[in-house]
Each structure stands twice: as C-alpha cells, then as structure tokens.
Amino acid sequence: MSTPPVASLPQFPVQPPVPGYGPPPMTMPGRVKAMRIVLFILGGFNTAGGALILLGAVLVSAYGDSADRHSAPLLYAVAAAALLMATATITLGIWCAHGGNRTRIGVIVVGALLAANYLLGLFNGQGLSGPGLAAATYLIATAVGADAKAWFNRPGR
C-alpha cells in the first residue's frame, strides 16, 4: 500500500518585521533561573534563622537572668542582620526577572557577604555552613558568567 501524496499548502510571503519593535525577547538562561531559585532558598533560610534568633532574643530578655540579658542586644542585632539579608536575597531574586547590571552586581555583593558569613561559621565549627557556602559560591560564579552578563545587559529590558 502506498500512501497518497500530501497536498502542499500554498506558500505565502513572510511578513517583514515591523519597524520599532526590535528583536524578539530573550529567554532567561537556565543558570540564571537556577541562581534565582538559590536566592529564594537562601532568603527563606535567612528568614527562618532570623525569626528563630529574634525569638531567642525575646526569650532571653524576658526569662534570662541579669548576665544573660546583656547578650540580648547582640541577638537582636544578629536577627536584624539575618532578616536584612533575607530581604536582600529575595528582592534580588525578584529583580533577576527584569535584569539590569545593578541586579547582577547586587547578586555578586550579596553572594560575597553570604560566603564570608558562612566561611566564618565553618571556622567556628558550624558544620551546617558548608551548603550555604556552596550556594553563595554558586551565586558568585553564575553572576560573573557570560550568560548572566548577556541576560542582565540585554537591550530592551
């Protein structure tokens, strides 16, 4: 059995591009998408950690003896720093969709601050800082990459 020939469709000319609209929009590279996910994950962990430290500061202020109460302001400062870092990472994760070189540089700076924090944690014997250090290093390595530069410096964003 032979198959019947397929009727060819009439060929119409392709419409030329409309002036003033530019090239089609660029899609976000996979590494930049992964960087966004890592930013959101680190922001969530910093939010949880900041909330737990804040709870600890409140409990120390309320129920600690006079020697313990002197450490409460330091706990409040650490909680504020963790919540500020959480705000920065989540905000940068949102801004990654829109691009801009400022966002890329912000990711590099926040990644360096996080890497320094996790590195200090490793030196203090906190073994749980290892995955955070790896995530912060990934943020820096991805943000300085060529595909991230192309995404954040794209025209018409």
Results as ranks from 00 to 15, higher is better:
residue 88 A to S: 06
residue 24 P to A: 14
residue 9 L to N: 12
residue 26 M to Q: 09
residue 57 A to D: 03
residue 66 S to M: 11
residue 63 Y to I: 11
residue 81 A to D: 13
residue 1 M to G: 13
residue 34 A to D: 14
residue 139 L to K: 00
residue 11 Q to R: 05
residue 8 S to Q: 14
residue 127 G to N: 08
residue 1 M to N: 10
residue 90 I to C: 11
residue 101 N to D: 13
residue 120 L to E: 11
residue 15 Q to L: 11
residue 69 R to N: 09
residue 70 H to W: 07
residue 82 A to C: 10
residue 21 Y to G: 10
residue 143 A to Y: 01
residue 108 I to P: 01
residue 157 R to M: 15
residue 44 G to N: 07
residue 74 L to A: 15
residue 130 G to K: 00
residue 153 N to M: 11
residue 140 I to M: 04
residue 144 V to P: 00
residue 123 F to M: 06
residue 65 D to G: 12
residue 46 N to F: 11
residue 122 L to R: 06
residue 15 Q to R: 10
residue 100 G to M: 09
residue 120 L to K: 12
residue 96 C to A: 15
residue 84 L to K: 04
residue 85 M to N: 07
residue 94 I to Q: 06
residue 122 L to Q: 02
residue 141 A to R: 07
residue 145 G to S: 13
residue 47 T to S: 00
residue 122 L to Y: 05
residue 103 T to R: 08
residue 124 N to T: 08
residue 78 V to I: 00
residue 38 V to H: 05
residue 4 P to K: 14
residue 40 F to G: 11
residue 154 R to S: 11
residue 90 I to F: 09
residue 49 G to T: 09
residue 87 T to N: 15
residue 45 F to W: 04
residue 60 V to N: 02
residue 69 R to G: 10
residue 92 L to P: 01
residue 78 V to Q: 03
residue 3 T to R: 11
residue 14 V to H: 08
residue 143 A to Q: 05
residue 24 P to F: 10
residue 10 P to Y: 08
residue 95 W to R: 14
residue 25 P to C: 13
residue 111 G to Y: 05
residue 21 Y to F: 14
residue 146 A to D: 15
residue 52 L to T: 07
residue 114 L to W: 02
residue 10 P to E: 14
residue 5 P to H: 12
residue 83 L to A: 00
residue 33 K to C: 00
residue 54 L to G: 09
residue 30 G to C: 14
residue 93 G to A: 04
residue 5 P to I: 03
residue 119 L to E: 01
residue 101 N to I: 11
residue 76 Y to S: 00
residue 3 T to Y: 15
residue 144 V to D: 02
residue 117 N to T: 09
residue 100 G to A: 10
residue 62 A to V: 10
residue 157 R to F: 09
residue 11 Q to N: 11
residue 157 R to D: 11
residue 29 P to Q: 04
residue 112 A to K: 01
residue 103 T to A: 05
residue 124 N to R: 07
residue 43 G to L: 03
residue 126 Q to P: 03
residue 153 N to H: 14
residue 156 G to K: 04
residue 120 L to D: 14
residue 128 L to Y: 12
residue 139 L to C: 05
residue 139 L to S: 04
residue 18 V to M: 10
residue 132 G to L: 02
residue 7 A to M: 13
residue 121 G to M: 13
residue 27 T to F: 14
residue 84 L to W: 02
residue 136 A to H: 09
residue 17 P to V: 05
residue 6 V to R: 06
residue 26 M to G: 06
residue 66 S to C: 06
residue 98 H to K: 15
residue 156 G to I: 04
residue 117 N to M: 13
residue 134 A to E: 03
residue 52 L to Q: 09
residue 28 M to S: 08
residue 24 P to G: 10
residue 142 T to E: 08
residue 155 P to T: 06
residue 109 V to Q: 01
residue 40 F to D: 07
residue 146 A to S: 13
residue 61 S to I: 08
residue 117 N to R: 06
residue 81 A to S: 10
residue 24 P to C: 04
residue 63 Y to N: 08
residue 83 L to H: 00
residue 109 V to S: 05
residue 75 L to Y: 06
residue 48 A to F: 03
residue 4 P to I: 11
residue 10 P to M: 12
residue 32 V to D: 03
residue 129 S to C: 15
residue 44 G to W: 01
residue 36 R to V: 13
residue 146 A to P: 14
residue 64 G to P: 06
residue 30 G to K: 15
